[in-house]
Design a protein around this nucleic acid. Sequence first.
DNA 1: ACACTTCCCGGGAACGTTCGCAAACATCAA
DNA 2: TTGATGTTTGCGAACGTTCCCGGGAAGTGT
Lengths: 339, 339
Amino acid sequence: MMRGPSVAVTIREVASAAGVSVSTVSRAFTAPDQVQPATRQRILDAAAELGYSPNPAARSLRGGSTGTLGLIVPDIANPFFPPIIKAMQARARRQGYTVLVADSDEREADELAVIAAVSKRVDGLILWASTLTEERLHELAGRMPLVVVNRHVPGIPEVRISLSAGIAQAAELLKAYGHRRCVFINASRAELSRGKSIQESFEALDLSLHELGPYEPRFETGVHAATLVAAHEATAVIAHNDLVALGVLHQMANLGMSVPRDVSVIGIDDTLLASVSTPGLTTIRIDPEEIATRAGDLLIETIAGSAGRGTTGLDATSPLVEIGSRLIPRASTGPAPTH
Amino acid sequence: MMRGPSVAVTIREVASAAGVSVSTVSRAFTAPDQVQPATRQRILDAAAELGYSPNPAARSLRGGSTGTLGLIVPDIANPFFPPIIKAMQARARRQGYTVLVADSDEREADELAVIAAVSKRVDGLILWASTLTEERLHELAGRMPLVVVNRHVPGIPEVRISLSAGIAQAAELLKAYGHRRCVFINASRAELSRGKSIQESFEALDLSLHELGPYEPRFETGVHAATLVAAHEATAVIAHNDLVALGVLHQMANLGMSVPRDVSVIGIDDTLLASVSTPGLTTIRIDPEEIATRAGDLLIETIAGSAGRGTTGLDATSPLVEIGSRLIPRASTGPAPTH
DNA sequence: ACACTTCCCGGGAACGTTCGCAAACATCAA
DNA sequence: TTGATGTTTGCGAACGTTCCCGGGAAGTGT
């Protein structure tokens, strides 16, 4: 029975096969231009022949870098994240990195445990909507490259999602459809900034906006809030996210109201949910590819930056990249009922 | 400015702080019963004081095991997988493992590349619906512990999802509701076994089942197939998965047909989509926790098994665990139109 | 008191890689 | 030819850990 080598092939075997020293083999992979083309080719051939690939453990032990990025999100099962994870994997791989994803379960204790578990296996960390204190985050940032998303901490590189463009477009759409009274279903304090700019955008167009909540960002929240919306005689509702918006859709149907004929509904995030619901959900899109790319690249830059100096980052000025948003009109929005 | 040690603390520093040798510190962590309680406590205290935790790179370089499980799924963005990933992470962490998730993008070339990228960083691999040839899988299994899910390869530990229970329950439900003519929307050849047992289950209850497809498992497939269903004068439809079922729901609404009054719809997987659609989608549930637990444990067992002998697994008899399914009745199913 | 086992602990090699240093060789201007 | 400069390669230490092995202390049975 023929079988390949069950034990891993090392750099030494490649070296002897190619008739060079281990150093040269190492260089052929890490600094190809420092080795003569002829020998380099011989080495690469031998490596391919033997099926050699460098041992990441040894590499990271010696070099101190693991070649992986850590991504910690509040909830993997939240449909907003998987496309982002996927995009970041793809992006990182093209840059020679692997991505280690973990789930903080939205609880602070778990977040700390998760960070402890992954921090030694990654070169840097992307923390999404971290619940840690500013103090802890600074401490962490002093120990390893860090990027925070949807969380502002002075001195730490940040990716911020701005909903203002999408909100403004939503307001315009509703205005054009003749709506006057709108409701915003708010959830979770971290997103209150969303509610802030929402007020302004709507007032600017002379639309009244009543804010409900804050609640938990769950389907049932939408179900619950939908009845309140009806009581408020509002004709349009913006929900904290698509999931909540679907709750609204669901309850509206139960109440015998038709969307968008009786009430218009708008979600946020443009998750898969929005595109496959009936009716299709008008929503504010945040491009997963863009956010993954920007956050990933920012972390890689931070890592590269901290490699130079003795201590990690914490410049006086830390980078901030802002991700835009835009409205995706679907069938859940329409003319206000003429009454 | 006070700041923690920017450089990692090693076992050596713990050793000198506790007044023992590095060997003893190592033992205090890996084999606590081999060191006297008093010294062990002193070591643990010193370690906690210094904030020490073992370097995984060094540990895996020396010991040959990484403490990570690799999970390769066809598509992270498919809402079926995130809950599974989440559950497996939790389970693995409790067993001292980390999970490295990757996405094969449903393409064979990518799958090979992904495997190559992660194989050196993990102790074993869970391959979900792999598109690799049997030959390649055997070769891989000879090199490292392997578990396949939704794919049968003789000699390789396997987790199989059985839909027959759920299908049978679906048939019973439809029968009880008085349906006679049903349609199954099939997609992707790997799932044809699903279609197989479907036929039998329905025939057993004297229900006619017409099979459409195979198509791609996309939302648009459901949209497209819905019109065919109407043309077939069928009163019930089972879709390849929830996503396709939602496409059916969507198109039925467009055609002015009401679900479940005019037609009943059943999905498969019980993803988030099913629970938040309007009407709620009756679907066949496959428990993500169970599948994650079983697959994870099976891989861990396989790893433990292969550690003993010189060469990896490949017993004459390889384990097979089967995951059941059950129907979750929701609002998308009801009495057949009397007409 | 002696041999013998059991229990704890320290020394040191090894895991596979990278990288600083220096040797060997080639190139070129004076 | 000589010295200087540049290019290509090899040697060997180091990264942090585990684990085999051997030494000494402590306990046990005669």
